[in-house]
Design a protein around this nucleic acid. Structure first.
Lengths: 343, 343
DNA sequence: TTTGGGTGCGCAATCGTTTGCGCGGCATCT
DNA sequence: AGATGCCGCGCAAACGATTGCGCACCCAAA
């Protein structure tokens, strides 16, 4: 076969001596066409593996029904949490008959803007986005909205814009985790978090603080640190553990940081969890690769992705009006393992 | 603004009292239009943030130039190696001016077929795919080829089809890893691999066997096991280590399995690497989360992704004819860490 | 005054599909 | 026999953008 491009309805019509209209109606079963013709046309189409050109359809209907493609923007793809979210997005989108177009911003504002433009050009029907760290201006998101493209944020919410969003229950996750630490005998719990501008960090700190308060303890500011990766944790932890008023537990903003604390503590001769308890956040692959395995707050990325698609599709299909914002919260769950004492 | 859909050239033309043709030429700078008009039209377009409808363009040019969207099929997205590949794909595609449409087959043949159909409907210009484990029939891939859509396989190559492909150098990776084990004093190296139907497994086994042979050792069949995940490794390893002729080293097909061996060995009282050396394959997140850290063969997913896009785009842009297959191999590299003895 | 060339712009067709409307033929009812 | 209704099908417009062709105008040269 040298004919390398897909055939069109016109080709079928010509071959069978009927009009394009008849072919169209025969293929989609609408309209009054004789059984005989329908059979013949469908057979021919199957034979030459005809596929309708969605572009043409979407173009024609562009005013009424947009094409079923969702744009997805992520700061990075090769990252445990984001890749589980993406998996959830793909799964749910697929289930609802949508395809996804994916792009990573790489934490760059410029790339984010360019991605939005290309999504607009490609006529996606909606966009699911977690914004880049250095995004301060929201015009590109506004343009999408003005063009009638619904927007749903996840994980990193855009504080400057009031749109639908899906997040995990950071406050509750932190609250339960820290409660567990205190319940198992810890009295001085250190907090290793990201910069406080981030919603996530703020919420987790509040959960931490309130859990302590509920148990009659207070959050000691000298135990609150800005540290959210393993390398920094390995630099910071020795001095923290060598203080006279050293903590007997650590609550870290992610598993990576927690593992940095874990190995540093072990290297310094502390026993985990006998001397020091540690709790992370995420429950990624690493959490069960370390020794002892990490107690951590499970954050179901796949559910976040699914919910995001669900909200977005509801907007696209006008079951939720554009101006109404929907906020969904995915529950977190504490997974107790070896870095904290059993109850 | 209640006008929620993007404006078209017709809108601009109407507003400014010129023809659509003029607008088109003014915007893309082609044709003889007065400076004055060009300015006016561009200003208006910018003002109302006009974006060309790519669908219309692609439709018009469908016979000549396809739209710049690449379809990507993965068995699963939430997986370390695949997500790094996807990241590489996105990066390179973006750099070359393409967007990607991503779908996961979830290892299901039926889903794979449906994905191919929807890619055909959406008129992607090419497809990058790693096939599902239970795919035996290749018709859906053939349909893509017949429709003139170039195909590039990565990781899991389709043995029934002679297409362009990108793989990592499994043989060499295994050869170097096993050589390292022997060089550091190991004499009986066990092989934990996937079923031998898979190319990957076959190649890694051959590298293992030849490395032993080169050092005057021979591959003992009683040390070859079908075991490629942590749970199985934890079940299998105790009996292997309690044999009289037990191995003094393990070469595993992935990090997950290697970590299963590592912790099982430690639990049984063996010292790693003094008594038992272990080497994995992938160099994922887990490799540095375990203790001691894992010696492993680095497999650069991002490079695989980049190369795949590069080959595909060359096909799409006809720099490589459709019938010529291009095979690219991405180099692997041994990363020596704590589970093997230093040299 | 005619010819010629250049400039600024519009007409209309094209891509592949869907769909409102209408046309001719046949059967049925009055 | 004339009126009515249904059946099977085709015409043509529409979606948004691009482009070959040609029209009208102006200015200069003959």
């Amino acid at each position: 076969m040298s004919g390398s491009t897909t055939i069109t309805m016109r080709d079928i019509a010509a071959a069978l001596g009927v009009s394009v209209t008849t072919v169209s109606r025969a293929l989609q079963g609408t309209g009054r066409i004789s059984e005989e013709q329908v059979e013949k046309i469908r057979a021919y189409a199957r034979e030459h593996n005809y596929f309708p050109n969605e572009l043409a359809g979407s173009l024609r209907l562009s005013r009424r029904a947009p094409q079923r493609v969702i744009g997805v923007i992520m700061p990075q793809i090769a990252h445990y949490y984001f890749s589980t979210i993406l998996s959830g997005i793909e799964d749910e989108a697929s289930r609802q008959g949508y395809r996804i177009m994916v792009a990573q911003s790489d934490e760059s504002y410029e790339r984010e803007v360019r991605i939005c433009q290309s999504f607009l050009k490609n006529r996606v029907c909606g966009v699911i986005v977690s914004q880049a760290k250095d995004t301060r201006c929201y015009d590109h998101f506004l343009h999408l909205q003005q063009a009638g493209v619904p927007l749903v944020f996840y994980d990193r919410i855009c504080t400057g814009l009031n749109t639908s969003r899906v997040v995990v229950d950071d406050y509750h996750g932190a609250f339960v985790a820290v409660s567990h630490l205190v319940d198992t005998g810890c009295r001085r719990v250190a907090f290793y978090g990201s910069p406080m501008q981030l919603e996530i960090s703020k919420n987790r700190y509040n959960g931490y603080r309130d859990a302590l308060a509920q148990h009659g303890l207070h959050a000691d500011d000298s135990l609150k640190f800005e540290c959210d990766n393993r390398a920094d944790a390995e630099l910071l932890t020795p001095e923290v553990l060598q203080r006279a008023d050293r903590p007997d537990a650590f609550f870290a903003v992610n598993d990576d940081t927690a593992i940095g604390i874990l190995y540093t503590a072990k290297r310094l001769g502390f026993h985990v969890p006998a001397d020091v308890s540690i709790c992370g956040f995420t429950n990624g692959e690493r959490a069960i690769a370390c020794e002892p395995m990490l107690t951590t707050v499970e954050q179901r990325g796949d559910k976040v992705g699914r919910e995001a698609v669900d909200v977005l599709v509801a907007h696209v299909e006008q079951r939720i009006p554009p101006d109404k914002v929907e906020r969904r919260v995915v529950k977190t769950r504490l997974i107790v393992r070896g870095t904290t004492r059993g109850e």
